Simulated scan of single mutants.
Amino acid sequence: MSPSRASRTRRIGFLGLGMYVPPKVLTNHDLEKMVETSDEWIVSRTGIRERHIADPGTTTSDIATKAAQVALKQAHLSGKDIDLIIVATTTPDMLFPSTSCLVQQNIGAKSAVCFDLSAACSGSVFAMITAQQYLMSGRYRNALVIGAEVLSGFIDWTDRGTCILFGDGAGACVMAPVRRGGILATDMGSDGSAAEYLYMPGGGSKYPPSHASVDQRLHFLRMSGGEVFKLAVRRMADSTKRVIKDAKVKPEHVECFIPHQANTRIIEAVAKWADVPIEKVYMNLQRYGNTSAASTLIALYEAVKEGRIKKGDHVVMVAFGAGLTWGSVLLQW
């Protein structure tokens, strides 16, 4: 079979999953001592009860490596077996080199091609779709995809509108051609006209690090919550409908729905507008908060571990993030 022919018939699936969150837990009651808020207020508006926070000095590559090691063990592979590493993150260890190269060194993946991908909370979905395309071409045998964030260092802990939402963590998957199941359909989209609704102004070429940028608090995440809510619901619901249609799967045959774990109000609204029964929706944000690019992979790992996803089940993963970006994957487990 020629490479071009193979690329049209190859299905890409998952050999192993992994996750890692730092041991330190920050509860809503802890936040009550830091900002003007309450456990009741946070839970009623977001569904979040606690989040994990990395200790000072812990880097994105540190937690990405730990999640990768779990996924590699589950896939019965070692670092030297991996051909491609993609790390989705908005909180890299440094602007360069890429976090993926640091993970490569940590796991001994000497033969792997490595790069990072920046799509904010949509990062893992974008990275999985990107890896799928490389693997379908036949150029690489497998790929290690990681979504990892240490957001706690970029949160304004005096701003109750954002500090209650986010946590640190990493999710990982090993992808490769499979004989049955795998990814059946994908969808991606972006809208730069709405970039101002969710962004961090400092640290790049527009506002390089300086005393002035620090004094002006430009290195913290900024968000227009109301606008993000409306756009997130519409974009994720539409993307979900498209990916189900493209896969030629009946909506009622989707056994598990894994949306980006932003907050319960967004998730419930997406499920409603996408015609997904709430009992099919998987949520774990009550334990981790919004872990951005790590969110959907952490949720996939736990949904499988808890038995919510079984062999042959159809699963939709959908995410939305800064950019704006959104994307979805429909796969058969």
Rank of each mutant, 00 (worst) to 15 (best):
S152T: 07
A185G: 09
R235T: 13
M283P: 08
M1S: 14
R160Y: 00
D215Q: 15
G327Y: 09
E302F: 12
A319M: 02
R8C: 13
D83W: 10
L300R: 06
D62Q: 00
Q332G: 04
Q69D: 12
L165I: 09
E149N: 10
I164G: 04
A75H: 02
D238Q: 14
G57M: 10
I266R: 08
S124N: 09
E252G: 13
G323N: 05
V103C: 02
A172S: 15
A71K: 12
R242A: 06
L221T: 10
P56Q: 13
H314V: 08
I258Y: 00
W333S: 12
H260V: 06
Y197K: 11
R217S: 14
S205Y: 12
P92S: 05
Q216G: 02
E255S: 14
R141W: 03
C256G: 00
K305R: 15
V243K: 04
L198G: 01
T296I: 12
P209C: 11
T37S: 03
V103H: 06
A131Y: 00
K33M: 12
V316W: 01
M94T: 15
S213I: 06
M223Q: 12
K245R: 15
R49F: 13
S328H: 00
Q332D: 01
P22S: 13
T158Y: 02
V178G: 08
V150P: 03
L117S: 07
G321V: 06
I85C: 04
M175P: 07
